[in-house]
Design a protein around this nucleic acid. Sequence first.
DNA 1: ATAGTCCATCGACGGATGTCAATATATGGA
DNA 2: TCCATATATTGACATCCGTCGATGGACTAT
Lengths: 116, 116
Amino acid sequence: MKNLRTIEQCCSPLLQEPIEPAEAVQLATAFKVLGDPARLRILSLIAAGSAGEMCVCEMVGPLGLSQPTVSHHLKVLHEAGLLRREKRGTWAFYAVVPERVEALRDALSVTAAVPA
Amino acid sequence: MKNLRTIEQCCSPLLQEPIEPAEAVQLATAFKVLGDPARLRILSLIAAGSAGEMCVCEMVGPLGLSQPTVSHHLKVLHEAGLLRREKRGTWAFYAVVPERVEALRDALSVTAAVPA
DNA sequence: ATAGTCCATCGACGGATGTCAATATATGGA
DNA sequence: TCCATATATTGACATCCGTCGATGGACTAT
């Protein structure tokens, strides 16, 4: 698990221009993070919730996984830049970083993107 | 490697509605396919090429991988519905299935999608 | 028929990954 | 200070995955 901080510049649309080997590694690393059911459920759990954020203790039950396992997945998602972490008291609250998800989404664009 | 044929109905936007555990498995299986540099490069190589399709012998060189390895990745991409295969003579031509890529792209939508 | 080319499959190997129990760390309250 | 709660880390385990060499199967041309 390296190079997770430098994925920021990634995600040119791989179906439109030939992708560089190095960029392929970056993108693949990001998609690999999404390639686990537990992590997708964590993202959905947080994003579809009403608060926009969620503490770890609220996730363990619904996910049906042990607390260390949930903590592990949260770390992976956080290091991939997909989750923001805020510690308040003993609790750790996690929120989705939408721009990060959008960036990965844009990499899968088939037609040219509309400028913002 | 199972359930690769039934991913067709997948991909409701996971950040907007809570995702079902079974659907999370389907989606994760699909993203896992994208979570490899070689497979991303294969998709890009074919899609960014001028013909829209490419035979295996044209990929081995640029990818710098052995022919069995390339064949393995092509199989994975094909079973995931991301590549279409057509055999002509001794050659096997592969083409990207854009709708499949779009479907995965839509799963990462943050805002509601515009109906076609 | 024989040889050659293209592609897929098999078997094996090393490394990565998801999971949990046990433990550590930190924060807040009695 | 001491205990309880919340989270992170460690260590271990089984499984999965990417890779290659060797082989097999199909088609073409000579």
